[in-house]
Design a binder for these strands. Structure first.
Lengths: 67, 67
DNA sequence: AGAAATTATACCTTAACGGGTATAATCATA
DNA sequence: TATGATTATACCCGTTAAGGTATAATTTCT
């Protein structure tokens, strides 16, 4: 499984949303969405889950070596 | 899949480690481990991944409705 | 190519996480 | 039950994430 930032980026695009549109709808700051998609690792989990929830997902434990 | 805090708590116990021992080995603060296992949602993802890495896991997107 | 839209990077402020410590509560075992 | 070990809750402080804004870089069109 790809990392979460990539997941958000790909699904957001697939949904035809800009980062700004996505941030608005998810109730997140634009800067956070940018940072998340850019792979920032020190983001807060609640915000990450707020973003994932837009696609019916959430952060769960998964094998670390699944590419 | 259970939430991450529960996953850590169960696997830590299965490994026969106290929160303190686990925190030490994972290079995390005891307070963080407590908060995580208690279900605190505003924790930082890098620390969460640091904890999950102890079991060869990391945070990945998963279906939100999997209980 | 150029223009418009989108995304990336940088600076600043506020709020809160993480760590440490102390104390209370809970659990385990004799 | 009592005693010790483990876990939970509360406080203080330093660091930093998040958000806003501005600007630069990139992409996406025509």
């Amino acid at each position: 499984m790809k990392n979460i930032g990539t997941f958000i980026k790909e699904n957001r695009k697939a949904a035809g949303l800009t980062q700004e549109e996505f941030a608005m709808r998810a109730g997140l700051g634009l800067r956070f969405v940018r940072d998340l998609e850019q792979g920032k690792e020190t983001v807060r989990m609640d915000k990450v889950n707020q973003a994932l929830a837009m696609f019916g997902m959430k952060a769960v434990p998964g094998k670390a070596d699944d590419e």
